[in-house]
Design a protein around this nucleic acid. Structure first.
Lengths: 127, 127
DNA sequence: ATCCTGTTATAATGACATTAGAACAGAATG
DNA sequence: CATTCTGTTCTAATGTCATTATAACAGGAT
């Protein structure tokens, strides 16, 4: 599993883990219907506690990105062809807005913001 | 001051405050060289502790968005016409990436992501 | 001189993140 | 069928963070 944790980061370990798993799914490195490693094995790999990995998995389940099958394991959900649900879209916008406002305050204009957004998309999907 | 705090949010109060101040600056509602309210008066307005407002102001100072003049008050910095510094840009990208990856996992394509980004920019600058 | 300002210090509280250890029950595998 | 692996649940300790509460200090504004 291609994951790297920064223990000293201000970002919680379980969030780092969830984010990196999301990126791996977005990039196609791991695909829908694939099983994620068990919480115990991944925890051992990363040198963190089992409960921390468990928490990351449950964050992804809340977002409907994976499905946790009790007593069995976690599986990546298929990407909805209908796009995000209203709730998902609202949350994305809620978190996107302050970042965009900050970019504007830094002197970026619409073109620049769309440009770096575009480059990040390429980075994820082609990287 | 046109600020609303949600005490029960999972987002820390000082972050909510900093974010909303950034949006007010981005929208032009409050402008460079204008003074922010004193930490004591704004805290009283919002019904929160002085230290919480103080923390928000120092967050904005770290980002070079305001200047805190010791024993005097806080003033909004001018928007750099040169755009963001490398450090500012890196931080923006760092926080933008997981959101964009999440959007992709939700089934959004490049056009949709650029479209909501664009609409948020309009919302901030024209709202 | 008085009031307002940000600064600093200390302290208490509750919540959160992380780790640890243990026990349970269902699934998978031999 | 027995063993192993799985996620689940519980308790508990630790450290850090967010928030509030006081209080006192010194420079700026009036």
């Amino acid at each position: 599993m291609f994951i790297q944790i920064e223990p000293t980061s201000e970002i919680p370990i379980y969030t780092q883990l969830a984010n990196q798993l999301i990126e791996l799914i977005a990039s196609g490195t791991i695909k829908p219907s694939e099983a994620l490693p068990s919480v115990r094995s991944l925890a051992a790999d990363l040198g963190v506690n089992m409960h921390t990995v468990n928490k990351a998995y449950h964050e992804l389940e809340k977002k409907n990105i994976i499905e946790i099958i009790p007593k069995s394991g976690a599986v990546i959900n298929s990407i909805s062809p209908k796009g995000p649900s209203d709730m998902q879209l609202d949350l994305i916008k809620l978190h996107l807005k302050p970042l965009i406002a900050e970019s504007i305050v830094y002197g970026m204009d619409k073109e620049q913001i769309l440009s770096i957004t575009s480059s990040i998309i390429s980075e994820i999907t082609e990287g």
